[in-house]
Each structure stands twice: as C-alpha cells, then as structure tokens.
Write a protein that binds this DNA or RNA. Structure first.
Length: 844
DNA sequence: GTGGTCACG
DNA sequence: ACGTACGTGACCACT
C-alpha cells in the first residue's frame, strides 16, 4: 500500500504565507485553508495513495472557539489569522475521511518519522509531504519526501538527495548537529556553518566518526579548535536534530486508509467558507449542502416543472414571472410552467409586455430589447444587483453561488432550468436581507433604474473616427521605431525594452545607473524611478518616451480599433456589480481611462466625435469628493470655502499656511491640493511627502495643520474609523455598504489599509451614488422632453451626451440642472459644461 | 495565472 | 524591520 503522510503545521504555514490574506464575508480568514487544500489535492493526485494521515503538533488549535485562546496562551510565532484556520482544516479533513493525527508530547514531524518507519519496516511506500527540509532525514528506499517550496514540490528520493547534498539522507542529522539551526534552537558547533559542516560530513559521514579521528586529520587548527570546544554541543545537537520514530500512535497502517467522504458536510463547510472553487474541484455541487444537511428532506418538496413553448397568448396571460435570457435563448417561469423560445420577436414582445418581471443580470435583456426597438418593461428585481448590494466584494453573482451563500435551496433537480426555478426563492431571500440592511431605496430608486440607463448608453455607443486613429497609430509607430533605435544605440545592443527584467539589467547593471527601488522580481523601472534618473543618461528619457508611445499605440490605437463595431461606434460594457465602492467600471474597451493628462495622449480624444449634425455635451463635477466630505462632516471652514465659490485648493492653502488668498503661491496651492487628495484617500505622511517632494516631517506638519483648520474633518474620519472597527462595515449617504475584513487583521499594514478604506469608501461611494442619481434623472428628462439626445458615457464624475445640434443647448441645461441639483447638500455641487465636435473639444 | 507598468477618476 | 493614499482595466512579459 501507499501512505501519504503530511506535516499539517508545515504545509499550513507555507500555504498561509504563500497566499495573500483571504476571508469570507463573516471575516473568517481562508487563505491557509485554500492553499493547504490546493497543495494536498495536487500531491494526492500525483501520489494516488491508499491511505493518508495528516499530523499536527498537539498544541495547534483543534476547536474553533479555542483558536483565539490558543493564540493568546501559546507560542508567539503563529499569527492569529493562521491559528483561526487550523480547526477548519482539521474539520474538513475529517469530513473527507482523512485521519488527523496528534500525539501528546510529540511534534508533527515525529509522527511523520514514526509513520515512515512503520511503512519502511513493512516494505510499504510512504510519501512524506512537508515544507520542512529537516524531514529529508527520513528518506530511504521506501520513503520519499515531497518537499513543498514556494514554487513547486520537489520529490526527494535517496538519489535526488544524494545529488543535492552529496551524502546519505540519514546524515542530514549529523549535518545539523554541526551547523545548528536557530529556528529549532539547535546550537550546533559554534563557528561551523553550512559549508564547513557539509564538507566534514562528506568526509567523515557521522559526528561520531568525526570526533574519533579529527584530531589527527589534516583539518585546520581553527576548525579543530572549534570542534573541540563544541564536542558536547554537537552530541546534544544530534539528539535534538533526530526525528523520533517511535511515537505512540496507532501502528495499524490500515487504520489510515481513506474513509468515506461526508459530501454534505464538506459542502456545508466549504460553502460557509465561500470556497466554491474548491467545492468544484472536489466534485461536490454547492447545493448538496442544503439538500443533504440543512433542509430536512420532509420540508422540501421538489418543484415539478412543465415545459412549454412561449407564445403571444402565454405572454398575455402572465402576471408576475421570472426569466433568464441567455444570449438568444429565453426561459420564462410562470407558476410551475417554464416557457422557452429563441424566437427574437417573441423575446422582444415578452420583454416589452406589461407583466412584472424578475431576473438575474438584466442589462443584456435591456440591450436585447433596445436592439429590437423596444424596451424591457416592469422589471421588479434583479438577483445580481441584490447580491452586489449585499456584498460588493464578491467576484460573481450566479444563482447557484448566491443560493449556497444565502441558504436557499438550489433546484439542481430541475436540470437546465435550475437557475430559473431557484430564482424566485433566491430573490425573496435577498430582498429580505436588503430590507434588513436598509438598502431597499438604494436598490429600487438607484440601482435597478440605473441598469436601463447603462444599457442605453452601451446601446448607443460613441462614434470613433477610425482614419484619425490609424493616422495617429502610424505616427506613433514611427516614433517608437526611432526611439527604440536610439535606446539600442545607447545600450550598445538590442533587447526587449518592454521587459522590466531586461531593461533593469541594461540600466542598472550594464550602464551602472543607481537602482532606487526593488520589486519582488528585480529592479523597479517604473516612471517614478526613471524620472529621477532622466538627467543622468539620455537613455532614460528615451525609455520614458518609448513607454508613452507604446502604451498609446497598443492600448489605445490598436486596442480601440479592435473594438469598433459595424456602426463605426464603440459600445463599451459598463459593469454595475464590479467595484467595492459603488462606482461603475467600464470594459472592452475601458472608456474610463482614455488619456487626458498629457498633451500627446489627449490627442486620442479628438477621435471620439459626435455623429453628423450632432455635438457632444460634456459635464463634470468639480471636486465632488471634497464637497461630499464637506457635506458629510459639516466642517464650517470647509463649507465656507465651497460656499464662497473660491478655488478650493487656494482656499485650503490660505487656511493651512495662514495667509490671505492673494498671497498663495502656485507652490502653496499645489501642496494644498495634494493634501486635499490625501484627505480623501486616508492620509499618510509618507505618501504625501513623496507626492509633493518634501520631508516626511514637513508632510506630517501639513496634515496636522490641515486637520487643525478643519477640525470636523478630523472628527469625521475618527468616528468613521471607530465605527468601522466596531461594525466591520462602512456606508455611504444613500446606505450603500462595504465590509472591511482588513480591520480585523492583526497585521498592522493591512489594518492601516483597512482604516484608509474606511475613510475613503463613504466619500468615493457617496459621490458614486450622486452621479448615478443624476444619470437616472438626466435619462428620464431626455426621454420625457423627447430630445434627440442620448447619454453615452460616464467617467466617475463626468457625463457625456451626444445631442442633435438643434437641442444641444437644452441638453446642456438639463445636464447642468440635474447634476447640480441631484441632492440637497450643505455645499453647492459645481458643474462645468462644454460642447464640442469631439471629446477633446467638449472637455473644455 | 501573476506581476509590473501605466492609463483614468 | 517593513511598507507606504482610494478606486478601476488593459497590455506585456514571464512562469
């Protein structure tokens, strides 16, 4: 038989430090569990063992409620976040029919040693999975060690060990006896390190042998002296380094054969941990948890569904239905009948009909309806949007996943209609949660109506003049060619400039420029670093130019041309359930990061144009986030600054530097501007100093002075953070919520990040709420007043309308009114509006 | 798939 | 001793 023996502590440690901290929505950390299972499954698949045993140190926490006590009472090395995860791993292994072993007075590797010996003695194969090189001493003809490193798992058999170390595995003990190991408190022989120790072992084999004959050998005096002085320590160390092989554990190997998996239990646990990928890997469906474990069989009656073809008569009989539109396939559930069709006209008729509708992910349905000249009417609910409001951090909002997450039965027994049949129950549950969280208005008045607006914007799209873009691309290609040649000349050879690795070698090794910063994988070559070096060598400037040209060419010229539709327009996808803060995002292509900050980049915007006889009307909020901050905290000075209509950064500078506004220099204004940004992001002196190029001390003073002048800002931040720490959640003015698990981390860096998130999200999120409301109102007014004008883009604080010239002024007026008056705030919301043939012009 | 870089608010 | 402002998405190199 084959036994897989695992050092649970060691693998869990590797997993924990190898994967960034993850947590479920209850704040339970899961990264180590996840990593452990991945390593386990991978090796299980390779070894295909008959039996598995996972050994833990006895002092690892076994029960969930003890995890915290364990951390407080015991060893310092293990962070709380890891200790908390131990019980889950043990529970999971148990449910999978795998033996978890501990032994009073013995450590995990002693248990492994014992298991290895049991196998070896019987002639059975043992695979020891660990991250700890000490266990390599266990290797023999029957025992292979699978050493998990950060990159890969190395299979160590006697041959491989010999190749790497140059002596037999068992002598690893002697090696450690000489060189010691500080992490295991093994002293070794003072002054003998890895090199000397290794050479001695290769020559003498064991320390016994060494101590018998070293005095007459050809070793140097100093080594002899060290060995003499460390003789006792060496013997003691050898004993310490030896892994026990006779721990009192169950020596019946058959008892470690893999048992039966409790699928329902595994499913329930992994669902609680929100580890759905793992669930997939284990080939257990998320629904098994509910059917088998939580819902008693008697209470659950399967829904018998009758299938039918959709027809006009059927549609006219509908009252309230749920539906799913998947591409051009529609399925509608009314009562216990599921109507299907892929007839476009019928689908359009259904979407247009007056019955109340519920779905998951309504935007494509709106798009479909609009493409057929109609609309989606009477949409009452969207499970995806509900799921997003309840947890903005989730990665996807599928019916199956949400059913598992919210404890709703997922009707997998209904086969291909499982999503549809489960939908109503799910929505009911999600609605109840949303109500409980006070987000009903946010859902009904903002998010649900917004979907139609976004669909319409996508549907209309924005015109792009392809000839212009191509011309620009030709120009860029020439510049790239030219710049590239200059770089090659300066470097003395050709290389891939786009490879940070190769570029780093050229700049910092071949050309000897001073490296400022390092990244995980080498030298940092980002713009900030290069900017500092640009006067030291002309190549640096050329690299910066090369980067600018290639970025523009590949992302914008090539990238955008690739996305032009047959109508000569770009139809981006606005994503409504993507960001943690409530903002919208844009993909394929991203229309929210079209260049504007540099002269060359902003040329791109000249190619986004209004159609024939039309103009673009662009309106953006000025400093909306600072204004939101002023409103939220109610600071008198800050409100006064906005109410006076003066430039806010100048006004801030005047306050902080305590001079009249007319005395504010451009430098002072720019420092004040940086502090204003910092305030919104959750200020830190270090980053501010970097941003404005002062000392950290000076930056700290700016912040202090700022907060002294705007005391309510300070108060608001403190209260927000305190509250967030207590509840684990922050909210926007309109009740949008974001959980912040980082706050319960014991890692200070993460905790600090959590605090900044807590300070920033209410501000960024409220600004997002406001512009969403404005979008809905603008959309409705354009419709109601029958203007030949459409909203086409949103860029966080900016809205763009394409309007017929005949009504452009009216559209501009609507934009201004609806944006300015979106909500009654304690400070005015200022809006800049411009018109132009292109986005470049309309931006003003 | 991940990390580095850079485009935007 | 370490890392260092909030929120995104796309492209490239490299594993």
């Amino acid at each position: 038989m084959k036994l897989l023996a695992i050092d649970g502590n060691s693998i869990l440690n590797r997993a924990f430090y190898g994967i960034k901290l993850l947590s479920n929505k209850k704040g339970i950390f899961t990264n180590a569990i996840f990593g452990f299972m991945n390593i386990y499954l991978k090796n299980f698949g390779e070894v295909k063992p008959d039996a598995v045993a996972v050994a833990f140190d006895l002092r690892s926490p076994t029960f969930r409620h003890k995890a915290v006590d364990y951390y407080k009472a015991n060893r310092k090395g293990m962070p709380d976040e890891l200790a908390q995860q131990m019980p889950y791993v043990k529970e999971l292994l148990g449910l999978m029919g795998i033996t978890v072993l501990t032994c009073e007075g013995y450590e995990a590797d002693d248990i492994l040693g014992t298991l290895a010996k049991l196998c070896s003695d019987r002639g059975d194969k043992c695979f020891v999975l660990t991250g700890d090189r000490d266990s390599l001493q266990l290797i023999d003809d029957n025992v292979t060690v699978l050493l998990a490193t950060n990159k890969e798992t190395i299979h160590y058999d006697p041959q491989r060990f010999m190749d790497d170390y140059g002596f037999e595995p068992i002598k690893l003990i002697d090696l450690k006896a000489l060189m010691g190991d500080s992490s295991d408190n093994i002293p070794g022989v003072a002054g003998v390190g890895e090199k000397t120790a290794s050479a001695l072992i290769k020559e003498y084999g064991t320390i016994e042998n060494l101590y018998e004959s070293y005095e007459d050998s050809g070793l140097t005096k100093s080594v002899k002296a060290k060995l003499a002085a460390g003789a006792e320590s060496a013997k003691e160390s050898k004993w310490l380094a030896t892994i026990v092989r006779d721990a009192p554990i169950n020596n019946d190997l058959d008892s470690y054969l893999i048992g039966k998996t409790d699928s329902a239990g595994v499913s329930r646990l992994l669902t609680e941990l929100e580890m759905f990928k793992l669930l997939d890997k284990l080939k257990i469906s998320a629904s098994e948890a509910e059917t088998a474990a939580e819902i008693p069989a008697a209470e659950f009656t399967p829904i018998e569904i009758t299938a039918a073809e959709l027809s006009d008569e059927a549609i006219s009989g509908f009252n309230r239905v749920s539906f799913i539109l998947d591409g051009t396939d529609l399925a509608v559930r009314s009562g216990n009948t599921v109507f299907t069709t892929n007839n476009a006209e019928l689908i359009a008729a259904f979407l247009n009909s007056g019955c109340e509708k519920v779905t998951v992910g309504a935007k494509p349905a709106y798009r479909f309806a609009m493409e057929h000249g109609g609309s989606l009417n009477c949409l009452r609910d969207d499970a995806e949007i509900c799921g997003y409001l309840l947890n903005t951090s989730s990665t996807d909002y599928t019916v199956e996943k949400m059913c598992a997450e919210y404890g709703v039965h997922y009707c997998s027994e209904n086969g291909e209609f499982a999503d549809l049949v489960s939908l109503e129950g799910l929505v009911e549950k999600l609605r109840a949660e949303i109500d409980r969280e006070g987000m009903t208005e946010l859902l009904e008045n903002i998010e649900l109506p917004l979907t139609e607006v976004l669909a319409s914007m996508e549907h209309t799209g924005i015109r792009i003049t392809q000839e212009g873009v191509r011309e620009f691309g030709t120009y860029l290609s020439e510049m790239i060619e030219e710049t590239q040649q200059m770089i090659y000349d300066e470097a003395g050879h050709e290389f891939n400039i786009a490879s940070p690795k190769q570029l780093g070698t050229v700049l910092f090794e071949e050309m000897g420029l001073p490296a400022k910063k390092k990244t995980k994988s080498g030298y940092s070559t980002n713009a900030e670093v290069l900017e500092e070096l640009r006067f030291q060598a002309p190549i640096v400037d050329n690299v910066l130019k090369y980067r600018q040209y290639t970025k523009l060419n590949s992302t914008y010229v090539v990238g955008l041309l690739d996305k032009v539709a047959e109508d000569g327009r770009i139809h981006t996808c606005f994503r409504q359930t993507e960001t943690r803060t409530g903002r919208i995002s844009s993909t394929e292509p991203n229309m929210q990061n079209i260049p504007v900050r540099t002269e060359l980049g902003s040329q791109m915007r000249k190619f986004f144009t209004a159609g024939e006889g039309k103009v673009l009307v662009d309106a953006d909020y000025s400093q909306i986030e600072l204004r939101v901050m002023a409103h939220l905290c109610g600071d008198k000075n800050m409100m006064e600054a906005f109410n006076s209509g003066e430039d806010i950064h100048t006004s801030t500078a005047a306050q902080v530097f305590d001079v009249p506004s007319i005395m504010v220099t451009p430098e002072m204004r720019s420092a004040a501007k940086a502090v204003n940004f910092g305030i919104i992001y959750g200020i830190g002196a270090f980053s501010l100093s970097k941003d404005i190029g002062t000392s950290v001390a000076q930056a700290k003073k700016y912040i202090e002075d700022y907060l002294a002048k705007y005391p309510k800002v300070n108060e608001f931040m403190e209260n927000t953070v305190d509250n967030a720490i207590k509840t684990g959640v922050v909210s926007t003015m309109f009740g949008r919520k974001r959980r912040i698990p980082e706050l319960s981390s014991s890692n200070k860096v993460l905790q600090a990040a959590g605090k900044r998130i807590a300070m920033n999200t209410p501000v960024q999120g409220t600004a997002a709420d406001l512009i969403k409301i404005a979008m809905i109102n603008v959309y409705r007014r354009l419709k109601a007043e029958k203007l030949d004008a459409e909203l086409i883009l949103q860029v966080h604080d900016e809205l763009i309308i394409e309007a017929d010239v005949s009504c452009a002024d009216k559209a501009a007026e609507i934009l201004r009114e609806e944006m300015q008056n979106v909500y009654d705030m304690r400070v005015p919301l200022a809006v800049d509006v411009h018109q132009g043939e292109s986005w470049y012009e309309a931006k003003g």
